[in-house]
Design a protein around this nucleic acid. Sequence first.
DNA 1: TGTACATCAGTGAACGCGCGTTCACTGATGTAC
DNA 2: TGTACATCAGTGAACGCGCGTTCACTGATGTAC
Lengths: 218, 218
Amino acid sequence: MYSLSANGCKVMGAMAATTRQRNPRGEGSRLREEIVEAAAELLEEHGDPAAVSLRAIARRAGISAPSIYGHFEDREAIMAAVVERAFAALTTRLHAATEGIEDPAVRLHAGCAAYVAFAQEAPETYGVLYQLLDDGEPAAPATSLEELAGGEAFAILLDGVQACVDAGASTAPSVPETAMALWVALHGYASLRTCLAAFPWPEHERTVTTLVDRLAWL
Amino acid sequence: MYSLSANGCKVMGAMAATTRQRNPRGEGSRLREEIVEAAAELLEEHGDPAAVSLRAIARRAGISAPSIYGHFEDREAIMAAVVERAFAALTTRLHAATEGIEDPAVRLHAGCAAYVAFAQEAPETYGVLYQLLDDGEPAAPATSLEELAGGEAFAILLDGVQACVDAGASTAPSVPETAMALWVALHGYASLRTCLAAFPWPEHERTVTTLVDRLAWL
DNA sequence: TGTACATCAGTGAACGCGCGTTCACTGATGTAC
DNA sequence: TGTACATCAGTGAACGCGCGTTCACTGATGTAC
């Protein structure tokens, strides 16, 4: 049964490098996820979103470039999927960091620290979150918070501040404005810290604590 | 003296569209500035730094693409010049907004408001400031503040906070850390405000005031 | 159970495009005699 | 003052490249008879 026949499965090692195992019938969506995964990896490796080309994604995923069109309309759609994935990861992270903590002030601290940590660990992924929003059209300004991309993450922050106020730990005069100020400051810190490595930054924990304590009126 | 001779100066209108007036001998640097200007304009018009290609810059400046190489090493060098220009503009703006104000707290407010206003009016120019730093190599972390790109702008902020502390208007425990927190928050606000237009932002003035008052311990 | 066929995941070649960069050049301007 | 020449700001054509996207296709897989 020695064979070099067309299906090529006889030489697994070599095959893996050259040909991909085709997904079974119903599971075309598996490749879809592999594409998004490949795009996310590329983004994190090269610092530049421009380096995440459709062809580079295909190369990374081990498929031909046109194969992508079976799963995505165009390159932009892939990036949108990457952003969606990143927001989901952020939200999960924030939930994980805060759940089970009773003291609202401690919980708020933990959530904010996790937000910054997320940005530190995957700076490009973090960066792409807001970058794509930048590209989108102006959108109706009246949109509710929940419908905003990242709205769920912001809602966690909002709840955190509200809990502090309710418990008397915070004297913040306005919960939404406080959450906004906090969010803005954390974003600024996360962005600058990663891109301005030469700056003599104080200790990480210390900075987050300062921002949270002062801006959340703790 | 009717003439269509080679120097073309007889038909100014038509000429301006097709041929550019060559700079006189010693003033090659004039084109250099036109190139930077063209790049800056392109950057601000298209939101995307990737759209500012060397060829696009040349087109905008009304010259052929190779002409640029007489003035810049490569595309990256042009972008570096754009960043330098942007930092100079920011610094000028901050000085203009704060000079002549006696009350240190009022001056700090004015400076911070000007910083945010600069970012609002030229969001792409503002964005490119930190973006380029991102691309650069890690650099020695021990670099002094003054040598950092944007160090002069930060120094203004530092002085502003120091003046507040000296005058007893601020109870900030650490001047550098306070300036850092303020800078980070202003940057975050400036970035997010421009890219997340759909968010229900509070009044502009109000937000800046909140950030400054809380973070500078006024 | 065996065979013909429809489905569909993925391919390979090709397209036109704009890019950064190079090269040999052109022709107006200033200078030396 | 007049002329030959060196300088140098800027040009036009060409290069190779990677890109996004299209098209007709291949061939393994599941299904109908």
